[in-house]
Computed example of a mutant assay.
Amino acid sequence: MKINSSEYAVSAVREDQYPKDDLPEIALAGRSNVGKSSLINTLVNRKNLARTSSQPGKTQTLNFYLVNKSFYLVDVPGYGYAKVSQKKRQEFGEMIQDYLETRANLKGLIILVDSRHVPSKDDQSMYEYAQYLNLPILVVCTKIDKLKKSQLTKVKANLKKVFDLSYDNVSVLTFSSVTKTHVTELGDWIQEKIAE
């Protein structure tokens, strides 16, 4: 996928604030600090389109980024961050649920997991929820540059401990925003989903 343009479009917390132009959307979900902003920036080849933060739990809205004037990447608030109050976490949950369950132009969900660890209970919940919604899923194992070559075989084994990867709607990629590993494949998956 060739990226010709990318821009921040809007932040939303409820349906009436979502973009109204009916373009296809791909959502990105994952734990706080798993690298969603870095993945967006790497994909569109811009340093600071999505703001990366050293402070996890910073994204508190659905952030829509318009790419090639033809589709949106939607950054969903990170989950599993302990310093966010129970009430806030519930609000995030409801906001994410409303979006994922009601958005007709949502074409797929990218679930980011840290390749260095076994996916968490939160990751498992998000994966099972996406299966329940019957969404195309791309599991992206981030920060692959931080692993030694000998550890790479463990990545898929760790995934299989938590996720049932036998579904037809699931693809898996390793990814690094540092070494640009599998950026092309990521773009291809998005291109394929928004064309369906």
Rank of each mutant, 00 (worst) to 15 (best):
residue 68 N to S: 04
residue 162 V to L: 02
residue 190 I to T: 03
residue 151 Q to W: 04
residue 179 T to Q: 10
residue 104 A to F: 15
residue 75 D to T: 15
residue 49 L to E: 02
residue 62 L to S: 05
residue 149 K to N: 09
residue 33 N to Y: 02
residue 98 D to I: 14
residue 188 D to I: 14
residue 177 S to W: 01
residue 29 A to Y: 06
residue 18 Y to E: 05
residue 137 I to T: 04
residue 88 K to L: 14
residue 144 I to M: 12
residue 141 C to Y: 00
residue 195 A to Y: 03
residue 100 L to K: 07
residue 177 S to G: 07
residue 66 L to V: 15
residue 125 S to D: 11
residue 41 N to S: 06
residue 196 E to R: 11
residue 117 H to D: 09
residue 148 K to R: 07
residue 148 K to E: 12
residue 188 D to G: 07
residue 149 K to I: 14
residue 51 R to C: 12
residue 17 Q to G: 07
residue 69 K to E: 15
residue 2 K to M: 12
residue 176 S to T: 09
residue 117 H to W: 06
residue 160 K to M: 15
residue 166 S to D: 03
residue 136 P to E: 04
residue 180 K to F: 11
residue 153 T to V: 12
residue 4 N to A: 11
residue 113 V to L: 01
residue 17 Q to H: 14
residue 109 L to I: 04
residue 162 V to C: 06
residue 109 L to Y: 05
residue 77 P to G: 10
residue 60 Q to G: 10
residue 81 Y to E: 06
residue 195 A to V: 01
residue 48 N to D: 11
residue 91 E to P: 01
residue 152 L to A: 03
residue 47 K to S: 14
residue 20 K to H: 13
residue 196 E to H: 13
residue 66 L to M: 10
residue 78 G to Y: 08
residue 106 L to Y: 03
residue 113 V to W: 02
residue 188 D to S: 12
residue 158 N to H: 13
residue 104 A to W: 14
residue 1 M to D: 12
residue 104 A to C: 11
residue 56 P to Q: 01
residue 91 E to Q: 14
residue 150 S to F: 07
residue 107 K to L: 08
residue 20 K to Y: 11
residue 148 K to Q: 08
residue 33 N to G: 08
residue 117 H to C: 10
residue 147 L to G: 05
residue 83 K to C: 01
residue 175 F to C: 06
residue 118 V to N: 03
residue 176 S to G: 08
residue 180 K to M: 05
residue 25 E to S: 02
residue 195 A to H: 02
residue 161 K to H: 09
residue 4 N to T: 15
residue 121 K to T: 14
residue 110 I to K: 00
residue 10 V to H: 01
residue 43 L to Y: 15
residue 32 S to K: 01
residue 53 S to D: 04
residue 39 L to N: 03
